[in-house]
Design a binder for these strands. Structure first.
Lengths: 334, 334
DNA sequence: ATGAAAGCGCTAACAA
DNA sequence: TTGTTAGCGCTTTCAT
């Protein structure tokens, strides 16, 4: 069933009547091969459809021209970054390898494990998305996107989470809301902390007290946001508006609201964060805070390439956030 | 600058005072290791943060528990598939490795090259997205999504492109359009051919002639669709509606229309195909044909896993398409 | 200009 | 139970 086993360098060598060493030289464009030999070997390569095994090659050469993007899971956030990185890689000559575990929020420390698994052999450098265990000591250059610690240690790309959260909260307040709930993100991520800080700052500035009973942790994922959302909206003195720390949990909040018989935005205003494409698809379309995710992916990739090339650069890039008005927020009905 | 070089099995062995073979046994859970040894080695592994190199391991063992998804580029279509595959991989125990070249539509034969590069070593099986050169003879099991040849050779997952195209065309006709343009996809893809067939079929059924001057090739990408779109809309007898063979080119058609001073849908109706999230973000939101991309990704992954496990299964999965009404189509103004 | 041989980090027989 | 010995497919000195 398995049919033809891969054609390997040895096959090419035998067919062309040369040694594997010579084939290797041809494949890698090394000097010291006669024109005639080169031509013949190249013909055999084309004919047999030979391509060097990335695994074997990288084991020996420690330079692969492949860049890694390590994510816990392929979901809207990471795939937007991927699109950005993909468009930026075009001009660099590198190829891209995105690696993810089984999903299910991947266990703690996944970033370190994936990195050791791939670095030193397969990849020349890595972008790690939302890592929590950040170690500076890795064999290869690493750039973090939206990490645990904020701008320390690793070179980092993120967006202005604090300002964005202020924007979101101010929007709700401007609409007339006073009882505003906050559904936070993953406690281990800097972005989640900054978004909560921004929320509290804006409330404070407006002279509004924060009811701690209306502050919950949603964990950035629909499944983990569901329970807290139910508790929040099930209260007798439930909020008239909820700021969810990312779009996925905001969408979940809307789903729970509908399930409890409410209408968004009439009975409840909801605002998210990220502006992943899915936010526009929700019904109603979700008002949210835009993070330039594709740009962030592209910048992370450029930063990584510069790091590999040994170019010194500012080690922290913070991109701006902005309010995106759609249909999930309205003045409170009272 | 590179700091600590990766910790390898030899380091663990030396620290624990055993041979690398023993460490290997511990890492891979093989029998024949004393409890005390196992504990000690495990401690050292944890302490040093050791993780086996995927490259080295796979070179030797030819079983990696990693599944590959090979794409030409990370764009909305492939990333939707990725999301689906990612959610399906959770329960299987496999990890996911998505590989892409530099973008720029990757040269012809990329699928074969990527496959030889990774198969035989790094991955136990692969999903190839929109391949054009389909070869049955690869070292590992392969599933194709939306391939060149249609349901021959390779196990395949696709959607009902023909029926979807009929749906799209009928929608336009039902709105009262008679001069309908068609902006086709990549000629080397079966899906593009079927979508054109569906278009012609629906026109024929409605007794409408197809003006060949209004049929162009857009190539599925914004850049390649731009020129043909300009030609189509620049004509004196331009169409009142355009069916673009995928969302990305439909969005480009709308952009060109606006640039030429038209309003969508007042002056021109546009319908797309795919229903990638981006279609909902366009202005106006794009009416389109839904392909269940995430499901397709999930099904492709399940099919691949069954193939690896040697389970026989239907080798071709065709999922249904459906019309998604948004705001880019209206009756012709006349 | 070419090939022989060593070895990258790991696993799998086989011996001890 | 453990260690020794071969490689996996490739690149890279170093002879020839």
């Amino acid at each position: 069933m398995d049919s033809t086993p891969r054609v390997k360098m040895e096959d090419v060598a035998r067919t062309a009547g040369v040694s594997v060493a010579t084939v290797s030289k041809v494949v890698n464009g090394r000097y010291g091969v006669a024109q005639a030999t080169l031509t013949r070997v190249q013909e055999v390569i084309d004919e047999l459809g030979y391509e060097a095994s990335l695994g074997a090659r990288s084991l020996r050469s420690h330079r692969t021209n492949v860049l890694g993007i390590l994510v816990a899971e392929f979901e809207p956030f990471s795939t937007e970054l991927l699109k950005g990185a993909s468009s930026a890689v075009g001009s660099t000559g590198y190829e891209l390898l995105a690696y993810s575990g089984g999903g299910r929020g991947a266990d703690v420390g996944w970033e370190r494990r994936y990195l050791s698994r791939l670095s030193g052999t397969l990849i020349d450098g890595a972008i790690i998305v939302t890592p929590t265990v950040v170690e500076a000591n890795t064999g290869v250059p690493v750039v973090a996107v939206d990490p645990h610690t904020g701008p320390t240690g690793l070179p980092t790309v993120d967006s202005d989470n604090f300002a964005g959260a202020v924007l979101a909260t101010e929007h709700l307040i401007g609409l007339g809301h006073r009882r505003i709930g906050f559904l936070g993100g993953r406690l281990d991520l800097e972005s989640a902390r900054l978004r909560e800080d921004g929320f509290r700052k804006a409330m404070d500035t407006a002279g509004l007290p924060v009811d701690e009973a209306l502050v919950a942790v949603g964990g950035y994922r629909p499944e983990t946001a569901d329970g807290p959302a139910r508790v929040l909206l099930g209260r007798a003195d439930r909020p008239t508006a909820v700021f969810a720390a990312n779009d996925l949990s905001a969408i979940q909040v809307m789903a729970v609201a509908v399930e409890l018989g409410m209408t968004v935005p009439d009975d409840l205003s909801v605002i998210g964060f990220d502006n992943v494409p899915e936010s526009a698809l929700a019904s109603p379309p979700l008002t949210t805070i835009n993070q330039p995710l594709q740009e962030m992916g592209a910048e992370a990739l450029r930063l990584l390439v510069d790091l590999i090339d040994g170019k010194e650069r500012s080690t922290h890039l913070r991109l701006p956030t902005e309010l995106v008005l759609r249909a999930s927020c309205a003045p409170p009905r009272h």
